[in-house]
Computed example of a mutant assay.
Amino acid sequence: MSTNVFINLPVSDLATSKEFYTSFGWTLDPNFSNDDAGAVTISDTIYLMILGHHHWAQFTDKPVADTRTTSAVINALSVEDPAEIDTLVDRALAAGATEGKAQDLGFMRSRSFADPDGHNWEIMWMDPIARTGDWEAVQAKYGEQQPA
């Protein structure tokens, strides 16, 4: 059985967030979306739940963090091809995201963005050789760069 991942985010303007996340190719599931929440399908196993602040409060007693000024989580998603990084991040930027830090180590590349509420996302690719942990093979292919 595969594990599904549900990322839950509080958002200040649900309509804006629904438009933002669907504008770059993710799909809003109308069966689990209403005036309080939006269910966004990222992949077959990854889902994003965007919740208005009043709805978010039903799940926790903690106050909603101001993610425009603080950071607690970076939601990182991998892609199969490094070109997909630019495609997705450029679409997010066109939809109103703010670009964050980029990284290019050759064997691993990423770009990041913040959504309209300041939630951080990183889109990344890693060469399958690097995933094996065989750093001699990585260095042979990319040079002396080391993993962080």
Rank of each mutant, 00 (worst) to 15 (best):
21 Y>T: 10
90 D>Y: 08
68 R>M: 09
25 G>L: 03
61 D>T: 12
118 G>D: 14
44 D>E: 15
87 T>L: 06
144 E>H: 09
114 A>Y: 12
148 A>T: 14
141 K>T: 10
15 A>D: 14
72 A>V: 04
19 E>L: 02
77 L>S: 12
126 M>V: 12
112 S>T: 14
124 M>H: 10
119 H>Q: 10
122 E>Q: 15
63 P>V: 13
2 S>Q: 09
145 Q>N: 14
139 Q>T: 09
66 D>M: 08
96 G>Y: 03
66 D>L: 04
36 D>A: 06
73 V>R: 13
104 D>K: 00
97 A>P: 06
84 E>N: 11
85 I>C: 06
147 P>A: 13
74 I>E: 15
96 G>P: 01
29 D>E: 05
67 T>E: 15
110 S>V: 09
115 D>Q: 07
53 H>R: 12
144 E>A: 13
92 A>D: 14
130 A>T: 06
67 T>R: 09
106 G>L: 01
106 G>Q: 02
59 F>A: 13
109 R>E: 08
76 A>K: 00
3 T>I: 04
24 F>K: 09
56 W>T: 13
70 T>V: 11
9 L>D: 10
20 F>P: 09
54 H>E: 15
41 T>F: 02
80 E>Y: 05
55 H>R: 08
135 W>T: 12
79 V>D: 15
111 R>Q: 08
121 W>A: 12
107 F>N: 01
62 K>Q: 15
90 D>A: 11
76 A>Y: 00
2 S>N: 11
81 D>F: 02
107 F>L: 04
22 T>H: 03
110 S>I: 03
